[in-house]
């Protein structure tokens, strides 16, 4: 699959390696992408979903989440979890300008994801800056 040109200094392959690495660490992750907060796709580890569509929708979801959190005074947004009959979508901010989207099946290990994601988010942030 084609990925848009990533940040200079990091190859698209490095970003995708982080995504596939996380998929190997946490049970239930099916696909994932990195996108900008503008909704542009940066890197993807996907098979069935349309990564560009997911990037745009997830950016909107994160923006809405941030806005809601600010509105109700709950502090900084950590994640947006969309839970469906057939699985999960989890959106995490990567710095101020990017985001990580994880799609999982019904058995997604959210506990393990919350344990493993921070390090991945930090490395992604480093790769993108």
């Amino acid at each position: 699959m084609t990925n848009p040109p990533p940040a200079s200094g990091a190859s698209s392959g490095d970003l995708v390696k982080e995504l596939t690495g996380l998929r190997g660490q946490v049970l239930g992750i099916s696909e994932s992408i990195v996108a900008t907060t503008d909704g542009l796709l940066v890197a993807s580890d996907t098979a069935n979903v349309q990564p560009e569509s997911l990037a745009a929708l997830s950016a909107a979801s994160l923006a809405l989440g941030k806005r809601s959190a600010a509105e109700v005074g709950l502090g900084s947004l950590r994640e947006v979890v969309t839970r469906c009959n057939g699985g999960y979508s989890v959106v995490l901010a990567v710095g101020e300008q990017a985001l990580l989207v994880i799609l999982g099946d019904e058995g997604l290990d959210l506990t393990a994801l919350r344990r493993e994601a921070p390090a991945v988010v930090e490395r992604l942030g480093g790769l993108l800056s």
Binding site: S11, K17, E18
Partner: peptide, 19 residues
């Protein structure tokens, strides 16, 4: 799928389209 090493590798200009 193992977690990658933290070190960055430079992009190979031939492999990547123009930034």
């Amino acid at each position: 799928l193992r977690p990658p090493r933290p070190a960055l590798r430079p992009a190979t200009p031939a492999a990547e389209p123009a930034a």
